[in-house]
Design a protein around this nucleic acid. Structure first.
Length: 218
DNA sequence: ATCCCGAGGG
DNA sequence: CCCTCTGGAT
C-alpha cells in the first residue's frame, strides 16, 4: 500500500497534469446542484448537463419540484440511465427539502442523508462544492484509481476508501484531491484501456504493469 | 446481493 | 456487440 507521503505525491502529480480539475456539473444554485448530482449516478456529467437547463427552468425552487407531476419529470430526464428511479428521487428529495429544511439545502452530512436519493457520495459532493466543507466523495473513478494505485486494498468498500483517503491526505487537500482523482479516472486511468504506458505514475502503480502485460492498457 | 437504464465510446 | 458513466434503495 502507498503510505501517506506517497499518496500525497501521487495526488500532486495528478494536479500537475490536471491543474483545473473541478466539477463539470452545471447549476445555478445549491438546490439545482443537488439535483444534478442525484442525476449523475451511473451517468456521464455531459449527459446530465444536456438536460438540466430545461429541468431547472421548469422547477426553479424546491416547492415547484415538490408539487411536480412524476410523468413530466420523467419525460424531462428520460435521456439518462435509471430515469424512473431518479424521477421519484428528485420529487421526494424536493418534498424533503420543503418539509424538513424550509426549502434550503442543509449543510451537514447527516441532514443531507435524510433526503431521498442522497447517499454518502452525493452528500459529500454537495458539502464540498456548495459549502466548501472538506469531504472526499468516493465514486467509481475515485474507487478505481485508489485501488489501482494501492492507496487502499482492492476489496475496500466505499466507506473504507473515504476514511483511508482522509487519513492519508491533509484535510486542506481533500476537495482538490477528489477532483483530481475524478479527472485522473476520466482521462488517464480509465476503466477500460487506461493509458498506462505513458502514465507518470506507472512506477509507483500496483496495477499498471500488469494491465500492460495483459494487453488491457494502452 | 440485486435492481435500475439511456447514451456514448471502443 | 460490450462496457462504462461522479449510486442509491431494497
Amino acid at each position: 500500500m502507498l503510505n501517506a507521503k506517497q499518496t500525497q505525491t501521487a495526488i500532486a502529480i495528478m494536479g500537475e497534469i490536471f491543474p483545473n480539475a473541478k466539477t463539470s456539473l452545471v447549476a445555478d444554485s445549491p438546490f439545482h446542484f443537488l439535483l444534478a448530482v442525484i442525476l449523475s449516478a451511473q451517468t456521464t456529467d455531459k449527459a446530465v448537463n444536456r438536460l438540466t437547463p430545461a429541468l431547472f427552468a421548469r422547477y426553479p425552487q424546491p416547492i415547484d419540484l415538490a408539487q411536480a407531476d412524476e410523468a413530466e419529470v420523467r419525460s424531462l430526464i428520460k435521456t439518462i440511465g435509471l430515469y424512473r428511479n431518479k424521477s421519484k428521487y428528485l420529487i421526494a428529495c424536493a418534498q424533503g427539502l420543503v418539509t424538513k429544511f424550509n426549502g434550503q439545502v442543509p449543510q451537514t452530512r447527516s441532514e443531507l442523508l435524510q433526503l431521498a436519493g442522497v447517499g454518502q457520495k452525493t452528500a459529500d459532493v454537495v458539502l464540498a462544492e456548495c459549502f466548501q466543507i472538506p469531504a472526499i466523495a468516493v465514486d467509481t473513478h475515485v474507487s478505481r484509481v485508489a485501488k489501482r494505485l494501492a492507496i487502499v486494498p482492492k476489496n475496500a468498500n466505499v466507506l473504507q476508501i473515504e476514511h483511508t483517503l482522509m487519513k492519508k491526505l491533509p484535510q486542506s487537500s481533500w476537495i482538490a484531491a477528489h477532483h483530481r482523482m475524478i479527472f485522473w479516472g476520466r482521462y488517464q486511468c480509465m476503466a477500460r484501456q487506461p493509458k498506462c504506458s505513458t502514465c507518470p505514475l506507472l512506477e509507483i502503480c500496483s496495477a499498471g504493469k500488469g494491465l500492460i502485460k495483459k494487453g488491457a492498457a494502452k
